[in-house]
Amino acid sequence: MIVNVKYLGMLVDQTGKTEEKIVFDNKSLADLDSVLQGKYPILKELPYNLVVNHEVASSSLELQSTDEIALLPPFAGG
């Protein structure tokens, strides 16, 4: 499956991208997450929410290729 993944906040700096297409074998959000953590090991160190179609989602969720996916970390600046 191919999905589009958007990065927010400090994850833009850590991945060097605002968004990208990710190809992965399985269907769950957890599978996608582990593919991303393999590609960007720094993600294992950072807290972030997995967002699917504008809702924070649980990792067991099964994905569709049309889903909008984003990684949302906390910001602290003020």
């Binding site: 400090m10 160190e45 950072l46 807290p47 929410n49 924070v56 970390p73 906390p74 602290a76 600046g77 003020g78």
Partner: peptide, 19 residues
């Protein structure tokens, strides 16, 4: 929304990053 904060060494503020 955010059960966990980033670790200390991965935190940067406006004064370090710019805004």
């Amino acid at each position: 929304a955010y059960p966990e904060a980033p670790k200390d060494n991965l935190r940067l503020s406006c004064s370090e990053l710019g805004v």
